[in-house]
Nucleic acid binder design. Structure first.
Lengths: 159, 159
DNA sequence: TTGTTAGTTAGCAATACTTGCAAACTAGGG
DNA sequence: CCCTAGTTTGCAAGTATTGCTAACTAACAA
Protein backbone atom coordinates (compact mmCIF):
# COMPACT_ATOMS: atom_id res chain seq x y z
CA UNK A 1 0.00 0.00 0.00
CA UNK A 2 1.22 3.50 -0.64
CA UNK A 3 2.01 5.93 2.13
CA UNK A 4 -0.80 7.89 3.77
CA UNK A 5 0.44 11.01 1.98
CA UNK A 6 0.41 9.34 -1.40
CA UNK A 7 -2.99 7.89 -0.76
CA UNK A 8 -4.24 11.33 0.18
CA UNK A 9 -3.10 12.70 -3.16
CA UNK A 10 -4.53 9.73 -4.99
CA UNK A 11 -7.89 10.07 -3.29
CA UNK A 12 -8.13 13.75 -4.08
CA UNK A 13 -7.13 13.25 -7.67
CA UNK A 14 -10.06 10.90 -8.02
CA UNK A 15 -12.47 13.50 -6.73
CA UNK A 16 -12.58 11.89 -3.34
CA UNK A 17 -12.25 13.81 -0.13
CA UNK A 18 -9.62 13.47 2.50
CA UNK A 19 -11.53 13.03 5.72
CA UNK A 20 -10.02 12.51 9.16
CA UNK A 21 -11.53 9.05 9.21
CA UNK A 22 -9.75 8.10 6.03
CA UNK A 23 -6.49 9.58 7.21
CA UNK A 24 -6.71 7.57 10.37
CA UNK A 25 -7.37 4.35 8.50
CA UNK A 26 -4.52 5.06 6.08
CA UNK A 27 -2.14 5.47 8.97
CA UNK A 28 -3.37 2.38 10.76
CA UNK A 29 -2.80 0.31 7.67
CA UNK A 30 0.57 1.74 6.82
CA UNK A 31 3.23 -0.85 7.53
CA UNK A 32 0.61 -2.99 9.15
CA UNK A 33 1.55 -6.65 8.95
CA UNK A 34 -1.26 -7.97 11.06
CA UNK A 35 -3.74 -8.73 8.26
CA UNK A 36 -6.56 -7.18 10.23
CA UNK A 37 -10.25 -7.78 9.77
CA UNK A 38 -12.57 -4.80 9.37
CA UNK A 39 -13.72 -5.36 12.91
CA UNK A 40 -10.26 -5.42 14.43
CA UNK A 41 -9.23 -2.30 12.56
CA UNK A 42 -12.40 -0.68 13.79
CA UNK A 43 -11.32 -1.54 17.30
CA UNK A 44 -8.02 0.29 17.02
CA UNK A 45 -9.57 3.13 15.07
CA UNK A 46 -12.25 3.65 17.70
CA UNK A 47 -9.63 4.00 20.38
CA UNK A 48 -8.09 6.94 18.54
CA UNK A 49 -11.29 8.37 17.16
CA UNK A 50 -14.28 7.52 19.30
CA UNK A 51 -17.42 7.63 17.24
CA UNK A 52 -15.95 6.46 13.96
CA UNK A 53 -18.33 3.92 12.54
CA UNK A 54 -17.69 0.37 11.51
CA UNK A 55 -19.52 1.21 8.31
CA UNK A 56 -16.89 3.77 7.43
CA UNK A 57 -14.09 1.33 8.06
CA UNK A 58 -15.68 -1.16 5.71
CA UNK A 59 -16.27 1.55 3.16
CA UNK A 60 -12.72 2.81 3.18
CA UNK A 61 -11.24 -0.67 3.09
CA UNK A 62 -13.37 -1.49 0.08
CA UNK A 63 -12.33 1.70 -1.66
CA UNK A 64 -8.68 0.92 -1.08
CA UNK A 65 -9.22 -2.61 -2.34
CA UNK A 66 -10.90 -1.29 -5.49
CA UNK A 67 -7.96 1.01 -6.02
CA UNK A 68 -5.66 -1.96 -5.75
CA UNK A 69 -4.05 -0.69 -2.57
CA UNK A 70 -5.19 -3.61 -0.49
CA UNK A 71 -5.60 -7.31 -1.04
CA UNK A 72 -8.41 -9.34 0.41
CA UNK A 73 -7.61 -12.62 2.08
CA UNK A 74 -10.22 -15.13 3.03
CA UNK A 75 -8.99 -17.91 5.26
CA UNK A 76 -12.40 -19.44 5.77
CA UNK A 77 -12.52 -18.53 9.44
CA UNK A 78 -13.84 -15.26 10.74
CA UNK A 79 -14.19 -12.33 8.42
CA UNK A 80 -12.21 -11.13 5.45
CA UNK A 81 -8.66 -10.07 6.19
CA UNK A 82 -7.10 -7.04 4.54
CA UNK A 83 -3.50 -7.04 3.43
CA UNK A 84 -1.81 -3.71 2.74
CA UNK A 85 1.14 -5.54 1.25
CA UNK A 86 0.41 -5.59 -2.44
CA UNK A 87 3.77 -6.85 -3.65
CA UNK A 88 3.87 -10.40 -4.87
CA UNK A 89 3.87 -12.61 -1.84
CA UNK A 90 2.10 -15.57 -0.31
CA UNK A 91 0.81 -16.60 3.08
CA UNK A 92 1.57 -18.94 5.93
CA UNK A 93 -1.40 -19.42 8.23
CA UNK A 94 -1.07 -20.90 11.68
CA UNK A 95 -3.87 -23.38 12.25
CA UNK A 96 -3.53 -22.89 15.97
CA UNK A 97 -3.50 -19.14 16.58
CA UNK A 98 -4.77 -18.09 13.18
CA UNK A 99 -2.01 -15.60 12.56
CA UNK A 100 -1.14 -14.94 8.96
CA UNK A 101 2.39 -14.25 7.90
CA UNK A 102 3.51 -12.85 4.57
CA UNK A 103 6.08 -15.08 2.93
CA UNK A 104 7.93 -15.25 -0.33
CA UNK A 105 8.08 -18.44 -2.32
CA UNK A 106 10.75 -19.14 -4.87
CA UNK A 107 9.31 -20.49 -8.09
CA UNK A 108 5.71 -19.80 -7.17
CA UNK A 109 5.06 -17.60 -10.16
CA UNK A 110 6.14 -20.28 -12.59
CA UNK A 111 3.80 -22.93 -11.24
CA UNK A 112 1.38 -24.34 -13.77
CA UNK A 113 -1.44 -26.82 -13.58
CA UNK A 114 -0.45 -30.12 -15.21
CA UNK A 115 -3.95 -30.57 -16.46
CA UNK A 116 -6.06 -27.56 -17.45
CA UNK A 117 -3.59 -26.26 -20.01
CA UNK A 118 -6.44 -24.23 -21.42
CA UNK A 119 -6.75 -22.15 -18.26
CA UNK A 120 -5.48 -18.59 -18.65
CA UNK A 121 -3.65 -17.86 -15.42
CA UNK A 122 -3.69 -14.32 -14.14
CA UNK A 123 -2.59 -14.96 -10.59
CA UNK A 124 -1.03 -17.70 -8.51
CA UNK A 125 -1.48 -17.93 -4.77
CA UNK A 126 0.29 -20.26 -2.40
CA UNK A 127 -0.95 -20.87 1.11
CA UNK A 128 0.92 -22.82 3.74
CA UNK A 129 -1.03 -24.11 6.68
CA UNK A 130 0.72 -25.37 9.75
CA UNK A 131 2.12 -24.11 13.02
CA UNK A 132 3.96 -20.89 13.60
CA UNK A 133 7.09 -21.01 15.74
CA UNK A 134 5.28 -19.81 18.87
CA UNK A 135 2.45 -22.31 18.68
CA UNK A 136 4.81 -25.08 17.80
CA UNK A 137 6.82 -24.35 20.94
CA UNK A 138 3.76 -23.96 23.09
CA UNK A 139 2.21 -27.11 21.62
CA UNK A 140 5.15 -29.26 22.57
CA UNK A 141 4.56 -28.35 26.18
CA UNK A 142 0.93 -29.33 26.11
CA UNK A 143 -0.23 -32.69 27.36
CA UNK A 144 -1.65 -34.90 24.62
CA UNK A 145 -4.96 -34.91 26.47
CA UNK A 146 -5.11 -31.15 26.43
CA UNK A 147 -4.13 -31.07 22.82
CA UNK A 148 -6.96 -33.46 22.00
CA UNK A 149 -9.43 -31.44 23.99
CA UNK A 150 -8.36 -28.25 22.30
CA UNK A 151 -8.63 -29.59 18.82
CA UNK A 152 -12.06 -31.10 19.36
CA UNK A 153 -14.11 -28.08 18.55
CA UNK A 154 -11.86 -25.49 17.00
CA UNK A 155 -14.83 -23.21 17.56
CA UNK A 156 -12.92 -20.38 16.04
CA UNK A 157 -14.07 -16.82 16.12
CA UNK A 158 -17.01 -17.80 13.97
CA UNK A 159 -18.12 -18.06 10.35
CA UNK B 1 -14.41 -39.25 -0.94
CA UNK B 2 -15.26 -42.91 -0.50
CA UNK B 3 -18.17 -44.56 -2.25
CA UNK B 4 -21.66 -44.25 -0.77
CA UNK B 5 -21.46 -47.89 0.29
CA UNK B 6 -18.17 -47.40 2.08
CA UNK B 7 -19.43 -44.27 3.75
CA UNK B 8 -22.49 -46.16 4.90
CA UNK B 9 -20.29 -48.74 6.60
CA UNK B 10 -18.08 -46.08 8.04
CA UNK B 11 -21.01 -44.16 9.45
CA UNK B 12 -22.49 -47.21 11.06
CA UNK B 13 -19.21 -48.28 12.55
CA UNK B 14 -19.06 -44.93 14.27
CA UNK B 15 -22.44 -45.45 15.83
CA UNK B 16 -24.07 -43.17 13.30
CA UNK B 17 -27.22 -44.08 11.47
CA UNK B 18 -27.72 -44.46 7.79
CA UNK B 19 -30.68 -42.28 6.98
CA UNK B 20 -32.19 -41.74 3.54
CA UNK B 21 -31.08 -38.12 3.72
CA UNK B 22 -27.48 -39.15 4.25
CA UNK B 23 -27.63 -41.74 1.52
CA UNK B 24 -28.93 -39.17 -0.89
CA UNK B 25 -26.20 -36.71 -0.03
CA UNK B 26 -23.53 -39.39 -0.32
CA UNK B 27 -24.73 -40.23 -3.80
CA UNK B 28 -24.95 -36.60 -4.86
CA UNK B 29 -21.38 -36.05 -3.80
CA UNK B 30 -19.97 -39.17 -5.30
CA UNK B 31 -17.91 -38.30 -8.35
CA UNK B 32 -19.14 -34.75 -8.06
CA UNK B 33 -16.62 -32.34 -9.53
CA UNK B 34 -18.74 -29.24 -9.21
CA UNK B 35 -17.47 -28.07 -5.83
CA UNK B 36 -20.99 -27.32 -4.68
CA UNK B 37 -22.06 -25.03 -1.89
CA UNK B 38 -24.37 -26.32 0.81
CA UNK B 39 -27.15 -24.35 -0.80
CA UNK B 40 -26.64 -25.72 -4.29
CA UNK B 41 -26.46 -29.28 -3.02
CA UNK B 42 -29.64 -28.60 -1.13
CA UNK B 43 -31.21 -27.55 -4.39
CA UNK B 44 -30.47 -30.84 -6.10
CA UNK B 45 -31.29 -32.85 -3.01
CA UNK B 46 -34.66 -31.16 -2.64
CA UNK B 47 -35.58 -32.13 -6.17
CA UNK B 48 -35.09 -35.78 -5.32
CA UNK B 49 -36.34 -35.63 -1.77
CA UNK B 50 -38.79 -32.80 -1.22
CA UNK B 51 -38.79 -31.78 2.39
CA UNK B 52 -35.15 -32.46 3.13
CA UNK B 53 -33.88 -29.54 5.12
CA UNK B 54 -30.98 -27.27 4.42
CA UNK B 55 -29.98 -27.83 8.02
CA UNK B 56 -29.49 -31.52 7.36
CA UNK B 57 -27.38 -30.84 4.31
CA UNK B 58 -25.10 -28.59 6.35
CA UNK B 59 -24.98 -31.16 9.11
CA UNK B 60 -24.03 -34.04 6.87
CA UNK B 61 -21.46 -32.00 4.99
CA UNK B 62 -19.85 -31.02 8.25
CA UNK B 63 -19.80 -34.60 9.44
CA UNK B 64 -18.14 -35.73 6.24
CA UNK B 65 -15.62 -32.93 6.54
CA UNK B 66 -14.83 -33.93 10.12
CA UNK B 67 -14.30 -37.49 8.95
CA UNK B 68 -11.89 -36.20 6.35
CA UNK B 69 -14.11 -37.25 3.48
CA UNK B 70 -14.57 -33.72 2.20
CA UNK B 71 -12.41 -30.65 1.90
CA UNK B 72 -13.66 -27.15 2.46
CA UNK B 73 -12.78 -24.50 -0.04
CA UNK B 74 -13.35 -20.83 0.55
CA UNK B 75 -12.94 -18.64 -2.48
CA UNK B 76 -14.08 -15.47 -0.80
CA UNK B 77 -17.24 -15.21 -2.82
CA UNK B 78 -20.49 -16.83 -1.87
CA UNK B 79 -20.50 -19.62 0.64
CA UNK B 80 -18.07 -22.41 1.43
CA UNK B 81 -17.53 -24.94 -1.32
CA UNK B 82 -17.24 -28.64 -0.58
CA UNK B 83 -14.78 -30.82 -2.42
CA UNK B 84 -15.28 -34.59 -2.35
CA UNK B 85 -11.89 -35.03 -3.95
CA UNK B 86 -9.55 -35.56 -1.04
CA UNK B 87 -6.46 -36.61 -2.97
CA UNK B 88 -3.68 -34.09 -3.13
CA UNK B 89 -4.70 -31.52 -5.66
CA UNK B 90 -5.06 -27.80 -6.16
CA UNK B 91 -7.54 -25.42 -7.71
CA UNK B 92 -7.99 -23.19 -10.71
CA UNK B 93 -10.76 -20.66 -10.22
CA UNK B 94 -12.29 -18.76 -13.10
CA UNK B 95 -12.71 -15.15 -12.12
CA UNK B 96 -15.46 -14.78 -14.70
CA UNK B 97 -17.85 -17.68 -14.15
CA UNK B 98 -16.56 -18.72 -10.74
CA UNK B 99 -16.14 -22.34 -11.64
CA UNK B 100 -13.50 -24.24 -9.73
CA UNK B 101 -11.48 -26.93 -11.39
CA UNK B 102 -9.30 -29.49 -9.65
CA UNK B 103 -5.77 -29.44 -10.98
CA UNK B 104 -2.49 -31.10 -10.20
CA UNK B 105 0.66 -29.11 -9.81
CA UNK B 106 4.09 -30.57 -10.21
CA UNK B 107 6.41 -29.53 -7.43
CA UNK B 108 3.72 -27.97 -5.28
CA UNK B 109 4.38 -30.18 -2.28
CA UNK B 110 8.01 -29.17 -2.15
CA UNK B 111 7.35 -25.45 -2.05
CA UNK B 112 8.77 -23.67 0.97
CA UNK B 113 8.59 -20.13 2.22
CA UNK B 114 11.94 -18.38 1.75
CA UNK B 115 11.42 -16.51 4.95
CA UNK B 116 9.55 -18.12 7.87
CA UNK B 117 11.84 -21.11 8.12
CA UNK B 118 10.44 -21.64 11.59
CA UNK B 119 6.98 -22.37 10.26
CA UNK B 120 5.99 -26.03 10.51
CA UNK B 121 4.16 -26.77 7.27
CA UNK B 122 1.39 -29.31 7.35
CA UNK B 123 -0.29 -28.44 4.09
CA UNK B 124 0.41 -26.50 0.92
CA UNK B 125 -2.34 -25.12 -1.26
CA UNK B 126 -1.98 -23.55 -4.68
CA UNK B 127 -4.74 -21.51 -6.24
CA UNK B 128 -4.70 -20.24 -9.80
CA UNK B 129 -7.03 -17.42 -10.66
CA UNK B 130 -7.75 -16.55 -14.25
CA UNK B 131 -10.07 -17.50 -17.07
CA UNK B 132 -11.31 -20.95 -17.93
CA UNK B 133 -11.33 -21.96 -21.58
CA UNK B 134 -15.01 -21.19 -22.06
CA UNK B 135 -14.89 -17.73 -20.56
CA UNK B 136 -11.72 -16.92 -22.38
CA UNK B 137 -13.38 -17.83 -25.68
CA UNK B 138 -16.56 -15.99 -24.84
CA UNK B 139 -14.59 -13.00 -23.61
CA UNK B 140 -12.76 -12.57 -26.86
CA UNK B 141 -16.10 -12.09 -28.58
CA UNK B 142 -17.23 -9.39 -26.23
CA UNK B 143 -16.89 -5.73 -27.13
CA UNK B 144 -14.48 -3.88 -24.86
CA UNK B 145 -17.36 -1.66 -23.77
CA UNK B 146 -19.42 -4.61 -22.72
CA UNK B 147 -16.47 -6.14 -20.98
CA UNK B 148 -15.97 -2.96 -19.03
CA UNK B 149 -19.63 -2.79 -18.13
CA UNK B 150 -19.63 -6.37 -16.99
CA UNK B 151 -16.60 -6.05 -14.83
CA UNK B 152 -17.84 -2.95 -13.07
CA UNK B 153 -19.81 -4.57 -10.32
CA UNK B 154 -19.05 -8.25 -10.32
CA UNK B 155 -21.89 -8.36 -7.82
CA UNK B 156 -21.39 -12.08 -7.40
CA UNK B 157 -23.92 -14.35 -5.80
CA UNK B 158 -23.40 -12.51 -2.58
CA UNK B 159 -21.36 -12.96 0.57
C1' DT C 1 -43.02 -58.14 14.48
C1' DT C 2 -42.68 -54.99 18.08
C1' DG C 3 -40.49 -52.13 21.59
C1' DT C 4 -36.76 -49.25 22.99
C1' DT C 5 -33.66 -45.72 22.59
C1' DA C 6 -29.87 -43.18 20.94
C1' DG C 7 -29.05 -40.70 17.13
C1' DT C 8 -31.37 -37.59 13.42
C1' DT C 9 -34.15 -34.35 11.13
C1' DA C 10 -36.83 -30.14 10.35
C1' DG C 11 -37.58 -25.66 11.15
C1' DC C 12 -37.01 -21.67 13.24
C1' DA C 13 -34.31 -18.52 16.07
C1' DA C 14 -29.92 -16.60 16.63
C1' DT C 15 -25.30 -15.11 15.32
C1' DA C 16 -21.64 -13.22 12.49
C1' DC C 17 -20.23 -10.55 8.77
C1' DT C 18 -21.22 -7.20 5.31
C1' DT C 19 -23.87 -4.02 2.59
C1' DG C 20 -28.04 -0.82 1.42
C1' DC C 21 -30.14 3.27 2.55
C1' DA C 22 -31.27 8.00 3.98
C1' DA C 23 -30.48 11.87 6.80
C1' DA C 24 -27.07 14.76 8.69
C1' DC C 25 -22.53 16.37 8.00
C1' DT C 26 -18.22 18.39 5.86
C1' DA C 27 -14.02 18.87 2.73
C1' DG C 28 -12.67 21.55 -0.87
C1' DG C 29 -13.37 25.04 -4.29
C1' DG C 30 -15.16 29.54 -5.34
C1' DC D 1 -18.26 32.37 4.14
C1' DC D 2 -21.15 29.62 1.02
C1' DC D 3 -22.27 25.54 -1.96
C1' DT D 4 -22.41 21.15 -3.16
C1' DA D 5 -20.73 16.75 -4.15
C1' DG D 6 -18.95 13.42 -1.62
C1' DT D 7 -18.93 11.26 3.35
C1' DT D 8 -20.15 9.47 7.61
C1' DT D 9 -23.48 7.39 10.73
C1' DG D 10 -26.72 4.33 12.45
C1' DC D 11 -29.78 1.14 11.51
C1' DA D 12 -32.20 -2.10 8.73
C1' DA D 13 -31.63 -5.79 5.67
C1' DG D 14 -29.24 -9.74 3.48
C1' DT D 15 -26.44 -13.84 3.29
C1' DA D 16 -24.20 -17.80 5.29
C1' DT D 17 -24.15 -20.85 9.00
C1' DT D 18 -25.06 -22.81 13.48
C1' DG D 19 -27.87 -23.56 18.03
C1' DC D 20 -31.77 -25.53 19.89
C1' DT D 21 -35.50 -28.76 20.53
C1' DA D 22 -39.58 -31.36 19.63
C1' DA D 23 -40.87 -34.92 16.66
C1' DC D 24 -39.10 -38.74 14.19
C1' DT D 25 -36.69 -43.15 13.00
C1' DA D 26 -32.74 -46.50 12.19
C1' DA D 27 -30.75 -50.15 14.50
C1' DC D 28 -30.93 -53.69 17.49
C1' DA D 29 -32.81 -56.94 20.81
C1' DA D 30 -36.56 -59.65 22.48
Amino acid sequence: MHSPAELATQFRSMGRKLTPQRQLIFSLLHNNQSHPTAESLYGVASAQMPGISLRTVYQTLNELAEMGELLLIDIGEGGTRFDPNIDEHHHAICSDCGKIRDVHVKGASSLKPNDARDFLISEVGVVFKGLCAECEARGSKRSPALQAKMSQKPKSSSK
